[in-house]
Design a protein around this nucleic acid. Structure first.
Length: 542
DNA sequence: GCACTCACG
DNA sequence: ACGTACGTGAGTGCG
């Protein structure tokens, strides 16, 4: 029976099923249960008891594929289900409502949906078992569904007035830059069009194209090229500045206020559990995992993220250097473990080793280079790329890497061993046994093979960091419930958790969050460090 | 709908 | 002599 639009009527129907949904013994099988959990939350019903999500199961088994039900049904059941568009039309403003669809059609659709879901469970359950993924499924991904449902439901408060005022400031700066650019050019073009910018600079103004790369016959005008040209051609600096402000204004400053839910007055981003093949979460509508922080103008946006009311503050807790700590842990490299155990700044320690100077004599340039090398290692990059990143000769980059591996010989061994493991087994895995298949690891195509090798190196690191914070989130949710806290987890940004904390609870909650985050994976050799900050907005808290 | 660009970890 | 450094999402232009 369709649930009617009328609130009281709908509630009455949902109440009938409440004991079923909240039962701690009856198993619920579904595709994307986070969605259902949130629908039920809206009616005051908490998804309870054992539940089994086919989307999550497929994500763990085939993290690089897609996980929607139509794909799964067609791929594994050789069955094409009725598409929802056939009932309510394509996505968009003109999309209809399920309530207007004839009951006969809804019945078919709903029954088919349920039938496919249980068939998929029967198909997928052995896959988890065969790949030792059951524990990760049962103890991490499944409980995380309720954590994410809570986070999405809680949402985050945004100050629209602050952003609208800032929008005006940006608009003025953008107009000024636009006039400045066009005046320098001496003719009119659309600065927001990379195509027109390329033609303006390299055809009309005859600036020599620094021939980096041509994609589809079009000049590239990306940050790398324009910032190089900016040294000799000020117009390029202004185009870059214009682009930066446009991005800031359209993607964040103007967009965020429109995303406020009128019923709650808050922004409810979705946290996707089955997008990133490494095990990370992703965020959309809006993406709250890429809010600016690196530039002065960008950071302003974070001031718009505020506590729910005057009785709350924001608390941010983030893992320090988590991926480097985990590569030290996983590789077992003695020197890097030692540096972390001594509490050293890892980039400074790396520079000291690579350049053979005492810790207190490392220059800022040496530290910066060492930092770049540390990250390039995580990504599995080679000398060519490192030389590009640092703007040095390839031979110098090669020497830098050789010195690096002299210092951290365990890392070198890890990198060769993990690629070898991938060749032998066809997959790599994280500390908690999350797996990623690498079908191209033996490819005759060198580019594809290299890509697979970099993935083999990076995925256990990035994926273990994802495992760690997921476990922490689950344990923190349990602690919040057990301690009867009113404070809420409201954001996850890969190595950071943000909480809307009731002021009275702050001092009681801080050590709990710290403890759950640092001990999510027990008995590590490397110390795990968490930094916490509190403030009246996200920028202050960070 | 794709390419480009750029925001984050 | 190189070749996209790993993982994402969103806005814009343009065909």
């Amino acid at each position: 029976m369709p649930v009617p639009a009328e609130r009281a009527e709908a509630e009455a129907i949902v109440q009938e099923f409440k004991p079923l949904f909240e039962s701690e013994t009856i198993e619920k099988i579904g595709q994307n249960l986070k969605y259902d959990a949130i629908v039920l939350k809206n009616y005051g019903v908490e998804l309870g008891g054992p539940y089994w999500d086919t989307m999550l199961a497929h994500y763990l088994w085939e993290p690089d594929l897609r996980h929607n039900m139509n794909f799964l049904a067609e791929t594994y059941l050789q069955y094409a289900p009725v598409k929802i568009e056939e009932l309510i039309g394509k996505k968009g403003v003109n999309q209809g409502n399920m309530r207007d669809v004839p009951l006969e059609q809804i019945k078919e659709y709903a029954a088919e949906d349920a039938d496919i879901t249980i068939q998929l469970r029967d198909f997928l359950a052995p896959k988890l078992n065969d790949n030792q993924l059951e524990k990760l499924f049962r103890e991490v991904e499944t409980p995380l569904v309720k954590v994410l449902a809570d986070v999405e439901y809680a949402g985050v408060r945004i100050n629209p007035h602050f952003l609208m005022e800032y929008s005006g400031v940006l608009a003025e700066k953008i107009v000024a830059l636009e006039e400045k650019v066009l005046k320098q050019a001496g003719f009119t073009f659309n600065i927001a069009s990379p195509k027109q910018v390329g033609e303006a600079l390299f055809d009309q103004m005859k600036i020599p194209y620094p021939g980096k790369k041509m994609k589809s016959g079009q000049y590239s005008t990306d940050e790398e090229i324009l910032s190089e040209l900016a040294l000799t051609h000020p117009i390029c600096a202004d185009i870059l500045a214009h682009r930066g402000l446009m991005k800031l204004k359209s993607t964040y400053v103007d967009a965020l206020p429109t995303m406020i839910n009128p019923k709650t007055g808050r922004v409810h981003s979705q946290f996707n559990q089955t997008i990133a093949a490494t095990g990370r979460l992703s965020s959309q509508n809006p993406n709250l995992q890429n809010i600016p922080i690196r530039t002065i103008e960008g950071r302003e946006v974070r001031k718009a993220f505020i506590p729910r009311d005057a009785d709350h503050v924001l608390l941010s807790a983030d893992y320090s250097q988590i991926e480097l700590r985990l590569i030290a842990e996983i590789s077992g490299d003695e020197a890097m473990l030692d540096a972390f155990q001594k509490g050293l700044d890892i980039h400074t320690a790396t520079a000291a080793g690579v350049y053979g100077v005492p810790l207190d004599q490392v220059t800022s340039d040496q530290r910066r280079a060492a930092k770049t090398v540390n990250f390039s290692i995580i990504y599995g990059a080679g000398a060519t790329n490192l030389s590009n990143q640092l703007g040095i000769k390839r031979a110098e980059a090669k020497e830098l890497i050789e010195n690096y591996f002299k210092q951290y010989s365990g890392l070198k061994k890890y990198m060769t061993d993990i690629v070898e493991f991938a060749r032998t087994n066809g997959y790599v895995e994280t500390l908690l046994g999350r797996r990623r298949k690498l079908r191209d690891i033996d490819s005759r195509n060198g580019m594809m093979r290299s890509m697979a090798e970099r993935i083999a190196i990076n995925t256990p690191i990035q994926g273990t960091a994802a495992d760690l914070i997921k476990v922490a989130m689950i344990n923190i949710r349990e602690a919040l419930i057990a301690g009867n806290f009113q404070s809420k987890m409201i954001l996850q940004v890969h190595d950071e958790l943000v909480f809307d904390v009731q002021k009275d609870e702050l001092e009681r909650l801080k050590p709990i969050i710290f403890d759950k985050m640092t001990t999510a994976i027990p008995n590590l050799k490397v110390p795990i460090l968490v930094e916490m900050g509190v403030g009246e907005n996200w920028l202050e808290a960070h």
